[in-house]
């Protein structure tokens, strides 16, 4: 990787962040006018200059089919998990048991780690307790598991979730890494 591509990538990352902030600003106003757009641009530039973030580079590509597949499964999982937890909350006298499991992700990029962590936390009975960033391991607290077999089953669900995320936004190389893990298991 030589320097010019690095700088170009950096500029691209900043532009993505900038347009994201401008969109949020315009959504907050709720109406479009050039005044709103320009003031949003100024505010976003100031925010990016005053609060610089560590670069999170996106090296994959967006795959529409994968995105749709991820979104649909995410919604279904969110509803099922919510109903499950609500049901558990209403079941008086039932003591749910939990487990902390380590899940080794196939792709170790910061972006993948973050997205998997967010999705896992939002969906199926799970909470991230700790992350080993260098090794790409998520430590997940799983709610309402009866025994170790159920915990193992949950690990499979997280693998499938990661595969869907990579299938939606991953590069060809990352897709290969996920496929290799699938074979080795």
């Amino acid at each position: 990787m030589n320097r010019p591509t690095n700088i170009r990538r950096r500029i691209r990352d900043e532009l993505v962040a900038l347009s994201g902030l401008v969109v949020v600003w315009m959504l907050l106003w709720g109406t479009f006018s050039w005044m709103v757009f320009l003031s949003g641009l100024v505010v976003s530039v100031v925010v990016l200059v005053v609060f610089p973030l560590p670069p999170v580079t996106f090296l994959g590509k967006l795959r529409p089919l994968g995105l749709v597949r991820f979104a649909v499964r995410f919604t279904v999982d969110l509803v099922i998990a919510s109903l499950h937890l609500a049901w558990t909350a209403f079941r008086l006298g039932y003591q749910p048991r939990c487990a902390v499991i380590a899940v080794q992700l196939a792709v170790r990029s910061d972006l993948n780690l973050t997205l998997c962590g967010e999705a896992v936390s939002l969906i199926p009975g799970s909470l991230i307790v700790d992350i080993d960033r260098d090794a790409g391991v998520l430590y997940i607290h799983v709610f309402d598991v009866s025994d170790e077999a159920a915990a193992e089953q949950f690990r499979g669900k997280v693998y499938a979730l990661e595969a869907r995320i990579i299938g939606a936004i991953g590069s060809d190389d990352e897709l290969r890494q996920v496929a290799e893990r699938g074979e080795s298991r």
Binding site: R97, V100, D130, V137, E148
Partner: peptide, 10 residues
């Protein structure tokens, strides 16, 4: 209440 705890081992 935990069935397993991988983090404790790590």
């Amino acid at each position: 209440l935990l069935v397993t705890d991988d983090l404790a081992a790590a």
